[in-house]
Amino acid sequence: MQVGGKAADAVGLLAGVALDAAFGDPRRFHPVAGFGTAAGALERRLYAPHRAAGAAFAAVAVGVPVLAGVAAHVATRHRPVTRAVLVAAATWTVLGGRTLRHEATTMAKHLKQADLEAARGRLNHLCGRDPSTLDEPELARATVESVAENTSDAVVAPLFWGAVAGLPGLLGYRAANTLDAMVGHRSPRYARFGTAAARLDDALNLVPSRLTAALTILAAPTVNGSRAEAARVWRRDRADHPSPNAGQCESSMAGALGVRLGGRNVYFGRSEVRPFLGDGPRPSAGHIKRAAKLSGTVGLLAAGLAATVAATRAGVAAAAGHAVRRTRRGGGR
């Protein structure tokens, strides 16, 4: 298939989505794991218990991948096939849709078999809660909430930034999101050092989280949910969550599935009590399967939208460049 210059990013995004759907995360030598190792080494060199050190750490750790993306973008400006291949590889690397759905369905299988020990052992693949005392409904709730939030973080947000900013957007977003997972959580060590990483991740997810909510509402009928109910719960409960972004995704998911999310979350060494989202019963194994299916549908909708935006962006840029060249030629006469 011949790849036109205007379509390179769009084709690359769709190819990357297809690779993720077919193969999931690379099992060995995952580039994101390599980035995490490098970021950990950088943290050891720059760490100090104040925000300025954390800001410097975030600037370097995110800035380097962004600059690498810019360099690749410039180098492939007149090589659309190479550009498409690089965007496809980057998209595959930064997406986590198949892995998210696999972990969710594995959890549902354990809960359906009443194997709480296996389910508790699997929860850390999805979130950082202490599973030792969680029963089936709480394990299901943790899974559904993780699917909702990570549909944005691991699927919609990378595609959004790839659509609007190409390779630099894909690499920069994944770097920022990885840093937030590493140092953006509340702990004595990262209370100040992790502030910059956490706020950067929040800023980058403002639009994608709301887009995720809109697509979740749109796709609610695919899991026998109601768009009207999903929209109602989202409007009412989205601001109740302590996160400016997670509440968007979790409230729309709660409404689409007809369940109640929120409550007391126990982490290792601390606990949080969060407002309830939704009006239905507590989730069960069946709700996890529906959440995974809904996540996959949202991902497909986001992929189509991202490809459309990327192609439109490239077309506008090409038209603008052509207009500038014509103006310059006309001025030289």
Rank of each mutant, 00 (worst) to 15 (best):
W92R: 09
K112V: 09
A90H: 09
R174Q: 08
D25K: 01
V223S: 07
T91R: 06
G12S: 03
A239G: 10
Q2R: 01
E43D: 15
F29W: 10
D130N: 13
D153Q: 07
T105H: 02
A18H: 09
V85E: 12
G40C: 14
E250K: 08
F160S: 02
D130G: 11
A15G: 08
S252I: 00
T327I: 06
P244S: 14
A21Y: 09
A68V: 13
R232Y: 05
F23L: 15
V259S: 07
L170G: 15
R101I: 04
D25F: 03
V94C: 12
G169D: 07
A88C: 05
S132E: 12
P281W: 02
P275N: 00
K6C: 00
G121R: 02
F160C: 07
P221L: 03
G54F: 13
A239D: 11
M1K: 00
T308Y: 03
W92Y: 05
S295D: 11
P168W: 01
T105G: 04
G5A: 12
L19H: 11
Q2C: 00
A307M: 00
S187Y: 04
A22H: 09
Q2K: 00
E136T: 07
V70Y: 09
G330Q: 13
R189G: 05
L170S: 14
T76S: 14
